[in-house]
Design a protein around this nucleic acid. Structure first.
Lengths: 96, 96
DNA sequence: CTTACATTTGCCAAAATTTGACAAGTCAAA
DNA sequence: TTTGACTTGTCAAATTTTGGCAAATGTAAG
């Protein structure tokens, strides 16, 4: 599946010697779900990012960025003209 | 709602003096749906872009790019760090 | 004002997708 | 061969998206 966000939170979790079993309940899910999230098979709800950032003592902004990049990547994968579309989007948001 | 894709196909349709009633059946939908698509309340299925490009004598690549940009824009709107996430995605796809 | 016709809007149920929960599975260490 | 961490598969529930219809709106003509 491939997920930068998932890889990152797994690294963070492991570096703090936390088990899925310990983290999952704080996000109100079971270990199976969190495992899938770390492997990129499921998405964490964006509202849960701040909670996870706190639990993992991570920078919330970093996780939000990784999370969003994963979503975008998933959307555009296999799409033609993806790079051009991205450029145009970048312009659009700068105009806001 | 705001949709570059919708605005574009409406312009194309009108410039050729076609009615929703004439175009919608070619996409196997009713006028209400196509109206919503042009106004950005609904999304055209990406598989239908080539059909529409042909009907409207438009450049398929142009429509695909507009369509994808709309999808991305919808995904990232109101998200923090959107520009940073986009940058990172651009890098990712160049590595493929 | 009435008709005609293009478009829009609102609503609801059907279809599709995502999610949550659980059970069973793998794997490594002891 | 037992234990504990993690993974995988399945299935129904929940959520989101879609399709279709009917009624509303807008506009131009008669």
């Amino acid at each position: 599946m491939e997920s930068k966000f998932g890889e990152r939170i797994r690294t963070l979790r492991e570096s703090q010697n936390l088990y899925l079993r310990q983290v999952a309940p704080l996000l109100e899910m079971d270990t199976a779900q969190l495992s899938k999230i770390e492997k990129g098979f499921r998405q964490l709800k964006k509202e849960q990012i701040p909670i996870l950032a706190k639990v993992l003592k991570a920078d919330q902004k970093e996780l939000q960025t990784l999370w969003l990049a994963d979503q975008v990547l998933d959307l555009i994968k296999d799409q033609p003209n993806a790079d051009e579309a991205l450029k145009s989007v970048s312009k659009s948001i700068k105009k806001k």
